[in-house]
Design a protein around this nucleic acid. Structure first.
Length: 272
DNA sequence: GTCGATGTTAGCAC
DNA sequence: TGTGCTAACATCGA
């Protein structure tokens, strides 16, 4: 479920297992996830050493000693893993990077929406993809500058990677809940204090999620995420978290905003 | 068998 | 140019 916190967790893992390692071979099990010719990729990777890692929004970068950059995007279901012998390859491994040490790093992606590509640099990739500043780096003032004149709904704007990169569907719901803002508020009606609350909520949600390595069951009880249907952490098969963490007798609403499932508390986040 | 899904992008209509 | 809606991608798992 890769949004910014998951990708940051993957980046830390990749840094741990790949930094200063040489890529000895590239194994492509399913070329569907490649957004670059397999031979081109192999030529760019084999014999190269990983000199660093980076992240922008939901994109993870492996910096190579050639100066080129390997870009990993995990789509909806991407993950990473490491293994030594083929029988231990994780299910749905699509590409494996064989390291000089014998360890193999897996790009795992059941639904194959993830992509692997090459770029000349992080900034070249950022401009090519028109990505805004990372959601962890953006300031309240910049958020206001980018959103304050837009007349459309807040939620789709926050999901727009060109405005700020890294916010996905559940994170935006959580941010809006924490900031007590309705997802259908027109962005230009927000006041400066609203933008400050929004910014603080982005920081809170992202830092909490990263701290728990994106394991949402470990998140504080004050988080709305527990109301999402796929959280079975109370009793499997039931959903005992369908009430607002702050108004424990108020049911969380499920609606669709911009075509995306959206969860809100009708009391905390009154429509304007 | 049916439905929905965490992301992204293209196409289309206004 | 901005906007918003829909479909498509590929597949799993409930």
């Amino acid at each position: 479920m890769p949004e910014l916190p998951e990708v940051e967790t993957y980046r830390r893992f990749l840094e741990e297992v790949m930094l200063h390692q040489t890529i000895a071979a590239l194994e492509v099990k399913d070329a569907h996830v490649l957004a670059v010719e397999e031979d081109t990729l192999r030529q760019a990777l084999v014999g190269r050493t990983v000199t660093g890692t980076s992240r922008l929004g939901k994109n993870c970068f492996l910096l190579l000693d050639s100066g080129q950059v390997l870009v990993l995007h995990f789509g909806m279901t991407g993950d990473v893993g490491a293994y030594r012998d083929e029988p231990d390859a994780p299910r749905f491994t699509r590409v494996a990077f064989h390291l000089g040490s014998g360890l193999r790093v897996a790009f795992i992606d059941p639904r194959k929406f993830g992509r692997i590509r090459l770029a000349d640099s992080v900034s070249q990739y950022q401009s090519a993809k028109k990505l805004g500043p990372d959601a962890l780096d953006i300031s309240a003032a910049e958020l206001q500058a980018r959103l304050g004149k837009r007349k459309t709904f807040l939620k789709p704007l926050l999901l727009d990677q060109g405005i700020t990169a890294g916010l996905g569907n559940w994170i935006v719901d959580e941010v809006l809940f924490q900031a007590r803002l309705h997802p259908e508020r027109a962005a230009h009606t927000l006041t400066t204090p609203d933008f400050e609350a929004l910014h603080a909520a982005v920081q809170l949600v992202l830092s909490t999620a990263i701290q728990h390595e994106a394991t949402y069951r470990a998140f504080p009880a004050s988080f709305l995420i527990h109301a999402r249907e796929w959280d079975d952490s109370a009793t499997p098969g039931t959903n005992q978290h369908q009430y607002c963490p702050r108004h424990t007798t108020t049911k969380i609403d499920k609606t669709y905003v911009g075509g995306r499932a959206t969860y809100t508390c009708p009391i905390c986040q009154p429509p304007s």
